[in-house]
Write a protein that binds this DNA or RNA. Structure first.
Length: 243
DNA sequence: TATAATGTTTGAAC
DNA sequence: AGTTCAAACATTAT
C-alpha cells in the first residue's frame, strides 16, 4: 500500500481529528496505548513512509510496511493494531508497525530528507549521494535517509524517466544527471499523489510492472538488483548504464 | 493454489 | 567489528 504519497493522503484524511481528544483507544499493538487515552492530538505529520501522531511530549509512529491498511470512520472484522476513537469519528490501523517516540518530534527526524516535505533539500541529497559512490542508484533511491518516501514504484519510474540504468554506480553518473534524478524524485512523488487521489495511478506507470518500452518498443528487463534486491523494470536500450 | 507485491527490522552467520 | 543474509511480520490480488 504505501510509498510517501500514500501516507500524505492518510495525513490529509485524518485532518478532521487534528486538535481533537482521543476518547477511546484499543488494539493489539504491544505499545502502551493507554498513554494516548484522553489526550489531544497536537498534529499529524509524515516523514516519508512514517505516519506521525503527535501528542504532548510524545509521538505515535505508524509504519504500514508492505500490507498495512487503515479505515476512517469504518471498521473491518480484524482486530485493529491500533484504534483511536474521537467524539466525531475514528481511525483504525491494521497490519502495521506502531512505536512511540519520546520528546520533541523534531529531535527524531531530519525533515530535509523527505522528498515531499517543504524542507526537502536537493543539495543535501546530493551530498549524501556523494558519500557512497560505489552504491547502485537503484539502492540509493530506496535509501530512506536520502530519499525518504521513495519506494519501489517511484524508484522505477524516476529511473525510466531520467533514462538511467538502475545498476548505474552513483559515482559514475554525471552530476547534471544526479540533479535530474533528485528533482524527479520530488516531481514524480507529487504526480503520484495526484494520480493516486484520482485512483488512476497504475494508468500512468511507464516502467513499473510494464512489459514493453514505450520509447523503443523493445521488451523491458525485469530483474532483482542492488543490495536491496528489489525488482527493477528497465530498458537496456534506452537507460544508460554508468559504470 | 502458489506466488509475488508500493517495506523494514532483527539477529544469526560469515 | 563490519557485512550480508534469511527470517519474520502479515494481506491480498493474480
Amino acid at each position: 500500500m504505501p510509498e510517501g504519497p500514500s501516507i500524505v493522503i492518510l495525513k490529509e484524511a485524518v485532518q478532521q481529528f487534528a486538535g481533537k481528544k482521543v476518547i477511546d483507544v484499543s488494539g493489539n499493538t504491544s505499545i502502551d496505548i493507554e498513554r494516548v487515552r484522553d489526550k489531544k492530538i497536537m498534529s499529524f505529520k509524515t516523514w516519508g513512509k512514517h505516519f506521525l501522531i503527535c501528542l504532548d511530549g510524545f509521538t505515535v509512529k505508524i509504519h504500514l510496511l508492505m500490507f498495512g491498511t487503515y479505515l476512517i470512520n469504518e471498521r473491518k472484522e480484524a482486530i485493529p493494531r491500533l484504534s483511536l476513537v474521537f467524539a466525531t469519528g475514528e481511525v483504525n490501523f491494521y497490519t502495521c508497525s506502531v512505536k512511540l517516540l519520546e520528546g520533541d518530534i523534531n529531535s527524531h527526524y531530519d525533515w530535509s530528507e523527505d522528498v515531499m516535505n517543504e524542507n526537502w533539500s536537493p543539495s543535501k541529497a546530493m551530498e549524501s549521494l556523494k558519500k557512497n559512490p560505489k552504491q547502485m542508484i537503484c539502492d540509493a533511491l530506496l535509501d530512506q535517509n536520502i530519499f525518504s518516501g521513495v519506494g519501489n514504484i517511484i524508484k522505477n519510474e524516476v529511473l525510466y524517466r531520467t533514462k538511467i540504468h538502475p545498476e548505474s554506480l552513483v559515482g559514475k553518473i554525471p552530476d547534471s544527471e544526479l540533479d535530474i534524478i533528485i528533482d524527479e524524485s520530488t516531481i514524480y512523488s507529487f504526480q503520484f499523489l495526484d494520480w493516486k487521489k484520482k485512483n488512476e495511478l497504475k494508468k500512468h506507470w511507464l516502467a513499473y510492472a510494464q512489459k514493453i518500452c514505450l520509447r523503443c518498443d523493445l521488451p523491458l528487463e525485469k530483474k532483482y538488483n542492488g543490495t536491496k534486491k528489489r525488482r527493477s523494470f528497465f530498458c537496456t536500450n534506452c537507460q544508460i548504464l554508468h559504470q
